[in-house]
Design a binder for these strands. Structure first.
Lengths: 325, 325
DNA sequence: CTCAAAACTGGGAGCGCTCACAGTTCCTCA
DNA sequence: TGAGGAACTGTGAGCGCTCCCAGTTTTGAG
């Protein structure tokens, strides 16, 4: 930077100002500096800048989940991609951090609360991790993806309207004349699990408990839940599954049981992930507005970093009709 | 840090030493410092450290690809996950950077070559991006994932043995008695594209050109290529597809054409991605050792950072038999 | 023409660390 | 018993920026 100043014939201070918005820099100084920068090939040193400003121009993308799960989820990809892009557009870099094990969690927690990043994007489906409390305690700007069960009031979040999505889908199944509509839920310590189940009940009331089975968002779990359903309620004629991946498992289980889809049993998924279209038959599902979710998360986080108050954003979902229902 | 020093009754320098491996620190000083750190809740400031050491303890994970593609690929997930984990184990953070557009690429290139990271992991399938040259020119330690076409000698890389994997699979198809074996290749400016095709030719020699179609690693592209194949070589009885995603597309195309899999036409994929097991019928495919690829990439990068020379690592693949072939 | 305010500039201090170096203590062995 | 060396410790300089403040120039009324 001193080189640039020398070449441009100005002082360090002026170069710094020119680099940071150019307030109070004369046109001639500005252009001399631009030239000097080009000539010297100067690039700013972000560590020095962060040291001086106490701002890092980076945020952590924290995955607090028993690892494999999220990386299996095609939606997660889109989310990560969307957030990274949106942050890059704001000239902010993304630190990817895994907090699957308690040790990882402790490390990430120290790292983030130490102020090495300006904020954090939290992707975690399960409730009960102490991470969120630790981050809260240190007043780190945090935006969660999905409703953070038990923290709706004290942490900002962006979520799809899971409950309404479930209502749309179950309502659609009802309108198509299905009468014994079962559901395979997500884990009930996740907002996706409880909210989608709530939407199901919103439409159907307190239906037959035999029509409700709980899955774990995996394909194998979906298959197992479908088998359970078939066993307990053999007359089931439609099933609303809380994720496409589980729905793919359910499809396989139905095939093994000799039931045709959608003729004998209709299957509806949730997420509209890539696998939905690849299934046979292709899944009728609920689309989550993932790219909007990620841009909203970033927008919210930037506002928190600027000192604004927490907020929640709920985004609408959309039904996607294919052949499975 | 001064606080810690005061509380522990030692000097800054001793605290620093204690923090960095503890060479030449007495036991009593060490434990006093440990206590003081716990008491004060001190956490090191990585920016200050980086400024002083000229090392950032971070590496960039660069995706130089027209965006959506990689994020669609389930393998990419595993790779990112594996690398992040392996780096975290070495106490190195990962900066995720997208270099899809030329502007992004320029930004990333400046960022990385400015020495803000200690090295870079490059994930890019296509050849011809200037990024690799720019990084080379600045002597930034770089490890590529997959053979970097045209840069095999001057950049370190880790790759699965694509060619041998293709040989295994095509050999298997031959051994099962298939005679009109077609292939759907990846883009021919990618190593996966050319190497898997080369393996196919290794087994079959210069077969009928009508049996070769080029895809683009997408599901839709796979379906289109399959249709082309059916059109040009209606008697095709097996097809080796260079990726599972394309194979899923091929499956759909075959279904639409009224061909049964594997009875009329056998289909074999490549990657053993999650979608392989979800397909109907489940795909016979080649497994890439992704978690080993990622740990090897990290190991290689750390060695490069320590000043060792470039190297290449080729990892063996494995055939996974399911029902599609 | 004058003078206050606005626009601009330069330089010192400091962000929190590491590293080199000089100084101190403590062994060890002849 | 003393000298030489090993082990340990403290201090100052500096990494490359930004920010503040004081100083200088320019501008625009009156």
């Amino acid at each position: 930077m001193d080189d640039v100043a020398t070449v441009a014939g100005v002082s360090r201070g002026t170069v710094s100002r020119a680099l940071n918005g150019g307030r109070n820099v004369s046109g001639s100084a500005q252009s001399a500096i631009d030239r000097a920068i080009r000539k010297t090939g100067y690039v700013i040193n972000p560590h020095a800048r962060s040291l001086a400003t106490q701002r890092s121009k980076s945020v952590a993308f924290i995955l607090s989940e028993p690892q494999d799960r999220l990386f299996e989820d095609p939606n997660f990809n889109l989310l990560l991609h969307g957030c990274t892009q949106a942050l890059a557009d704001n000239d902010i870099t993304v630190l990817l951090t895994l907090a699957g094990t308690p040790e990882d969690r402790a490390r990430v927690s120290r790292y983030v609360t130490a102020g090495h990043v300006d904020g954090a994007l939290l992707v975690s489906t399960h409730t009960g991790s102490p991470l969120i409390d630790e981050l809260r305690a240190q007043d780190v700007p945090v935006v969660a993806c999905g409703r953070p069960l038990g923290h709706e009031r004290d942490v900002a979040y962006v979520a799809a309207d899971d409950r309404d999505g479930a209502r749309q889908m179950v309502g659609y199944l009802v309108s198509r004349g299905y009468r014994r509509i079962g559901t395979i839920t997500g884990p009930l310590d996740t907002s996706g699990g409880v909210d989608r189940l709530a939407g199901y009940h919103d439409v159907l009331g307190e239906s037959d408990p035999n029509l409700v089975a709980t899955g774990d968002y995996t394909q194998a779990g979906g298959a197992a839940a479908m088998e359970l359903l078939l066993d307990r309620a053999p007359d089931v004629d439609a099933v609303f599954v809380a994720s496409d991946l589980m729905a793919a498992g359910a499809l396989a289980a139905l095939r093994r049981a000799g039931r045709r889809v959608p003729d004998d049993v209709a299957v509806a998924g949730f997420d509209d992930s890539r696998i939905a279209a690849a299934c046979h038959p292709p899944l009728t599902t609920i689309r989550q507005p993932l790219s909007r979710i990620s841009t909203e998360m970033v927008r919210l986080l930037l506002r928190l970093i600027d000192g604004e108050a927490n907020a929640a954003v709920i985004l609408p979902t959309e039904i996607v009709l294919r052949e499975s229902a």
